[in-house]
């Protein structure tokens, strides 16, 4: 008899597949008939797959737990399951399954539904197109291109999370700037000290523990860019990456925005006559009444 366990270990170690020669060299004392019997057994229960490469037969190990999912299914389900499996964690769109499997729509729907109820596969909504569903194996973690990365939760963009993060990034930069100023030693030194790299900010954010999701440095870079866009920080190129620093604006709030008319949403409709006019304007009245 052949050590079946050994055979499986060998196959596992070579994901590209093992040939008869490999088996012979690994288990030299086994008879060919025994090996053939063992392989046939594995092929039957689905642990092995048979491939042909350049006229050579190759056996590939396949996880029996995965294999077992297709058990008790009919051939259509097996085919569909395989197609979905191939798509990996990026998932596959129902139309592509149809083309690949050559099944008609009603049949395919039935098959997918049955696979879904058996919890072999799941449907995941893609962020790029909200109506597009992709299918993938049940136990796979969807790829970031499908989920949208750290900023998405169930296809929804988590703007609050982004806001909190960008506030914290700004806080970090401001504190750093103030600290540098307190140190003294001249404005140039203070400025140079107030620069922070994305790595610094990343460390700070990770230590804060406000994020349940693991954020990458490039995630932090994009958050920092929003801070720059808000005109609260500047970024300069340095070496490979960027340096960030909180800055002040040139103006404190200008006169126009302190008035009610400057920010009035209906200023365009305001005139001497009509219901909207400065004499009875409620916004003006409220502003004049407050102390």
């Amino acid at each position: 008899m052949v050590d079946e366990h050994k055979l499986i270990e060998l196959a596992k170690s070579k994901p590209d597949g093992i040939s008869n020669d490999d088996i012979k060299s690994a288990i030299p004392d086994a008879k060919i008939e025994d090996i053939a019997a063992a392989i046939n057994k594995f092929l039957k229960n689905g642990s092995f797959e048979l491939y042909q490469d350049n006229g050579k037969l190759l056996y590939k190990y396949k996880d029996p737990s995965k294999k077992s999912t297709a058990k008790g299914s009919d051939s259509e389900e097996k085919i569909v399951f395989r197609i979905i499996e191939e798509a990996g964690n990026k998932g596959i769109w129902i139309r592509d399954i149809r083309f690949k499997s050559n099944l008609n729509m009603t049949q395919l729907n039935k098959v997918l539904k049955s696979l879904e109820t058996k919890k072999y596969i799941k449907a995941v909504k893609s962020v790029s197109a909200s109506k597009k569903k992709v299918y993938m194996l049940y136990d796979l973690e969807p790829d970031s291109s499908v989920t949208g990365g750290a900023w998405y939760q169930d296809q929804d963009f988590e703007s609050e999370f982004v806001d909190v993060l960008s506030q914290q990034c700004l806080r970090f930069l401001t504190e750093k700037g103030e600290e540098a100023k307190m140190h003294g030693g001249g404005p140039l030194l203070a400025r140079n000290k107030s620069y922070a790299t994305a790595n610094d900010v990343h460390k700070f954010i990770s230590e804060l523990g406000i994020s349940k999701v693991r954020l990458s440095v490039s995630d932090i870079e994009s958050i920092l860019y929003t801070v720059v866009l808000d005109n609260n920080a500047e970024r300069i190129a340095s070496g490979e990456g960027f340096l960030y620093r909180s800055t002040n604006k040139f103006l404190s709030s200008v006169g126009l925005v302190k008035t009610t008319c400057g920010v009035c949403p209906i200023a365009n409709r305001c005139a001497d006559t009509g219901l909207i006019n400065p004499k009875i304007c409620e916004y003006l009245t409220d502003w004049l009444e407050e102390n």
Binding site: L229, D230, N231, K249, F250, L251, V254, L256, V257, V263
Partner: peptide, 29 residues
């Protein structure tokens, strides 16, 4: 020129809030 930009940004800030300014500055850049 830069002061004028800041004034416009401030008006947008007060009228539409900070996200709109972010969009505006993005288009500017």
């Amino acid at each position: 020129n830069q002061i004028a930009w800041e004034i416009v940004e401030q008006v947008i800030l007060e009228k539409f809030d900070s996200k709109a300014v972010r969009i505006f500055r993005l288009v500017k850049l």
